[in-house]
Design a binder for these strands. Structure first.
Lengths: 345, 345
DNA sequence: AAAAACTCAGAAACCGATTACTAAAAGAGG
DNA sequence: CCTCTTTTAGTAATCGGTTTCTGAGTTTTT
């Protein structure tokens, strides 16, 4: 294993000083003769010179890196967000570091600390940690952060929220407008802001229509994998059908749980949507692939990533430290899992 | 925005030298009196000291970071791989940087370069770039790499391969053993090693059984998103049904395409598996969520991540530079999309 | 009581880059 | 021919840590 070639090695080979080499190789507009430029460029290429970013970043105090902290990369919603973030970052020559908190507050805090240590100046995070003291400290030391998806109750932070309450309301309203009156809501634990908001939206729509809400909450574990969510969708549907035999529609708090609900209904010989309508929430791509294709509320995930990254880069570059709060709106995606119920049924 | 507090600031506050502070804060076993230890630790905490990793890493020439380069994070197969990698990395206090090449060789090479510049010493990559000269150069300069999923034809690199050929053979054989004789194979372009291998496995099983292969290749674009794969599955199924009306089973080269195939069959009023059997490839979680649950060939994705990371860390720590090649075996996951065909039909 | 060994702390070099400052050489103007 | 710019290159300080080396003070050995 050879010693890595440094800027000084290149300088020696080119009979120049490291200062000149630095100016050439980092495209500074400092005056360097054309001959020197060519020579250094050529020699650096021949020697397979790879600049050491640690040295550069230490001196210039810029890492050109933004961090993203999300619950899980294997959730299609978040992977879409990341795609959006990366696209914008790439356009601006920024690098992106993605960390999965796996719903574990300690991991989240650990990643936050690590990023600060790595001199990351901007972070996009979907936080589940209750303890914001570390984050607050970082913000005071010049870090910038954008909260996405999950609200963080701090003044100093820009938020890109999604109107979960309205989404929950829209989904429920959609079912009501299709003649449904006995509508169950299947949700995972109401321990996160997003969950409680959707729930509120459901309750509001039901109460406005004078209907009695039927809510079933999954007591499942914290680890959230697709399989677990699918299973809890199946179980919640089972419970609902047993306790409320007269339901004509079920609203699930996310698409994968809706898949589970449909699975249970289908295995029980019930037809979707003819016997029961089902509506989901999230708008992941797989929703179009199941049978019947899932009607759902779409969150603008990719757009959220784009927007978050743009906002963050603005902050980093313009030193504009105003904190704003954007609210993205839900969109109904009508596919085939919801149908009109006749009045008498 | 305050100036960040450095190790020298802490030294001043504690009436000590930066050397001593460094020794305390980095848990060196260099002798430092208990009183000094306590004092420095306390002051550092009070001052919210955050060490600058750039300085540390520059001096020690270690980044404690491994890189992962994959085609796309939104492919569930790769996101499982990453989960495995991260788990092992976390146990060893390593950080993981994930990069999506998005099937673009230029992006892949760019990320490789960036990682080298950031002094990442170990990389796990699923490469699609033909040009291995950059990689070879990095390997000679002390970088370590593990190729997963896609073979790289270099001596100096350890490989964790998956036996695609056997998987293709097993899938086909499974259909044959269930009495099918007219079996179509739906695949995306045969431009990657994995694709050609599965294809070969299919051909081998067919020829051994004396059956005539029926292959339909998607000419779709390079951009591979789930939606695109789903659509091309739908289209391939359409073509197949028109050109070969007597098919009784279809084998798709990945699960999402199989979803597309099933969608087409279902919309045409054909029942799966009663009229046609379908088998997929990959074993993503969503396969259990569709109707009927998809029979498929499972790749050990998570295990691949675990293994790749363990192997890489061994290399990085033991300086053991032997290059080995591991071949992971496919596993048949029987669900409900394949059924036995009666002889006469 | 002197010598040897040990404990603990600090001074300063160093990692690989950037950059403020200095200086030599070349060209312009009188 | 001599001064005044202008152009181009180099010297050395610096970023925030780590670590080698040196040395002061204390304890143990003889």
């Amino acid at each position: 294993m050879k010693k890595p070639v440094t800027i000084h090695d290149i300088a020696k080979l080119a009979n120049a000083s490291s200062a000149t080499v630095s100016r050439v190789l980092s495209n500074s507009n400092y005056p360097v003769s054309a001959a020197m430029r060519e020579k250094i460029t050529r020699i650096a290429k021949e020697a397979n010179y790879i600049p050491n970013m640690l040295g550069k970043q230490l001196k210039t105090n810029t890492s050109m890196t933004i961090g993203v902290i999300i619950p899980s990369i294997s959730n299609p919603f978040y992977s879409s967000v990341i795609l959006g973030v990366e696209e914008i970052a790439r356009e601006h020559n920024y690098h992106v570091i993605v960390c999965n908190s796996l719903q574990n507050p300690d991991f989240e805090l650990g990643y936050l600390q690590t990023m600060a240590e790595k001199q990351v100046k901007g972070i996009i995070l979907s936080s589940i940690a209750q303890n914001t003291s570390l984050l607050k400290g970082l913000l005071q030391n010049g870090m910038h952060a954008i909260a996405i998806d999950q609200r963080i109750d701090e003044e100093e932070i820009s938020q890109i929220e999604f109107n979960y309450a309205k989404g929950g309301y829209m989904a429920t309203k959609h079912l009501i407008e299709h003649g449904h009156t006995r509508i169950g809501y299947a949700t995972s634990e109401l321990d996160r802001h997003s969950r409680t908001e959707i729930h509120q939206g459901y309750l509001k729509a039901m109460s406005e229509a004078g209907l009695k809400p039927v809510v079933e909450i999954s007591g499942a574990g914290k680890v959230f994998s697709s399989s677990n969510e699918f299973d809890s969708g199946k179980q919640l549907a089972d419970k609902m059908l047993e306790r409320h035999k007269d339901l004509t529609a079920i609203f699930a708090c996310n698409d994968v749980m809706a898949f589970g609900v449909i699975h249970t209904l289908t295995s029980r010989g019930l037809r979707v949507p003819d016997d029961l309508s089902v509506i989901g929430f999230d708008g992941i791509e797989y929703g179009q692939m199941i049978h019947p294709p899932l009607t759902t509320i779409k969150q603008p995930d990719y757009e959220m990533g784009i927007l978050a990254c743009k906002l963050l880069l603005d902050k980093l570059q313009d030193k504009d430290s105003s904190h704003l709060s954007v609210m993205l709106q839900p969109r109904l995606v009508e596919r085939a899992s919801v149908t009109t119920r006749q009045a008498g049924d």
